[in-house]
């Protein structure tokens, strides 16, 4: 029985760059779940992932993976994880057969049959050079290699960005299959919220280096809602009760974070269900409060 319940535990993580601050962020990725890590470009998703992988040095805070410190137990942790980036890290002159031999020497748990099964499933050629692969093929190859050495945690940085919807769906289905094993977990960073909405169990929303939301995805979507009302009705809503409001010639759309409470307080107003994309949109503009 494992002593930990979170595959990843991030606490007060801080990293300062010239012009950017990852400001004391904290979040957890429960074991056996898929965490969607969403935010705009430049919000701090990639910085966070690089800190998790110890590719860059943290200024403060702690990171635990499988209950172990990510620096003190770096090699032990890294033997159990797979990282997928938006660019293929393998040389373009190589082919899949050669890659299998190379990765077989790098990963102790490398399973060439699993790898070739994924290649067949993705219809990826074994002898074609990676330089001749399309972007979708390269991403499938990365995912096939990430899933072929028994990793218990997949860390994906914008893995589905730039792919067409068919390929994206195919990859998302593979992730769901991977999660059938309850010891496996995924951290999936993306700014494509529809992907996260489709497969994630939890969601963490980062904006300008700060975590705005982190928790169960369904609860997050369930708790939020959009009030569609007239401008006159909008003026009666207390600004403390909403995140931000989109004003148009026809009225106002107001994002609230506690649907039930707001429904009781403003009983005459209708609150519609919302999506992660809308939540992200309204949160990003929360400082202006009112926008068009």
């Amino acid at each position: 029985m494992n002593e930990y319940t979170n595959a990843i535990e991030v606490k007060d993580l801080t990293k300062k760059y010239d012009g950017f601050l990852l400001d004391s962020i904290s979040f957890n990725v429960p074991e056996g779940s898929i965490m969607g890590f969403i935010g705009q470009n430049g919000a701090g998703k990639t910085t966070t992932i690089r800190l998790l992988l110890n590719l860059i040095r943290k200024d403060n805070g702690s990171i635990k993976m499988f209950g172990l410190d990510n620096i003190e137990n770096e090699k032990e942790i890294k033997s159990q994880i797979s990282a997928v980036f938006d660019e293929l890290p393998f040389h373009e002159i190589l082919n899949a057969n050669q890659l299998s031999v190379i990765l077989g020497g790098i990963f102790d748990g490398w399973n060439k049959n699993t790898f070739f099964n994924y290649l067949d499933r993705f219809a990826l050629p074994r002898k074609k050079r990676f330089g001749e692969f399309s972007k979708g093929m390269k991403m499938k190859l990365q995912i096939a290699s990430a899933l072929s050495h028994g990793a218990r945690l997949l860390i994906m940085d914008e893995a589905t960005t730039g792919l067409d919807p068919v390929v994206r769906n195919e990859i998302l289905d593979i992730f769901l299959e991977y999660l059938q094993d309850e010891n496996n977990s995924i951290l999936l960073s993306s700014h494509i919220t529809t992907d996260i909405e489709k497969i994630a169990d939890c969601v963490t929303f980062i904006e300008k280096g700060r975590i705005l939301l982190s928790g169960n995805k369904d609860e997050t979507i369930e708790n939020h809602g959009v009030i569609k009302c007239t401008k006159a009705q909008y003026k009666d809503i207390d600004p403390d009760d909403y995140i931000s409001a989109r004003i148009s010639d026809f009225g106002a759309e107001v994002m609230v974070s506690n649907k039930k409470k707001i429904a009781e307080k403003y009983s005459g107003l209708t609150i519609d269900n919302t999506s992660l994309e809308e939540i992200m949109l309204f949160y990003v503009r929360r400082e202006r409060k009112e926008w068009k």
């Binding site: 992988l53 590719l55 890294k78 990282a83 660019e87 890290p89 790098i106 990963f107």
Partner: peptide, 18 residues
């Protein structure tokens, strides 16, 4: 140098290879 540029070195740093 190309290895560093294409991200293989970064990939290696994500593995348990010393």
């Amino acid at each position: 140098i190309k290895e560093s540029e294409c991200g293989f070195l970064r990939f290696m740093r994500t593995t348990s290879v010393r």
